[in-house]
Amino acid sequence: MTERRPNRTLGPDHDTFWAYCNQGEFRLQQCNTCSKIQWPPTPMCNECLSDEFTWTPMSGRATINTYCTFERPYYKECPPPWEAILVELEEGPLFMSNPKGFSVEGKERGTPVKVTFLDCEDDAGPFKLPVFELAD
């Protein structure tokens, strides 16, 4: 089943991120010079000012940093109660997402999760959205 979602930010670099997602791959920009991983996509490395990146596969392993539950509707596509989680990727970046197959209620920080993809669509068409499920 395809879920309707609020619009993504699209454009150069953003399109590349979503194109990998659509292949079921979770890749982020990594600087060719200093190795810093950037998220969200950026035109230039803010560590060393290089503009040469490789889209590096992330392991998909992460831990829960924090979360909240919206009880007021902000988007018609996201009816309350709507849970958002911030996870810390094994590689370092913090990634805003949603839980899949579990509720955040009572979850401890550091709870291990792993990336999976949800079939979604917005005004620009169908896409795969990275979300997180509990790791075994």
């Binding site: 993504r8 988007y75 958002a84 917005d122």
Partner: peptide, 18 residues
């Protein structure tokens, strides 16, 4: 936005949750 998270209240409630 695609994850349904764009509000100041969301950000600061996550900060307090942390």
């Amino acid at each position: 936005a695609p994850w349904g998270m764009t509000s100041q209240g969301g950000l600061y409630s996550m900060m307090f949750r942390r």
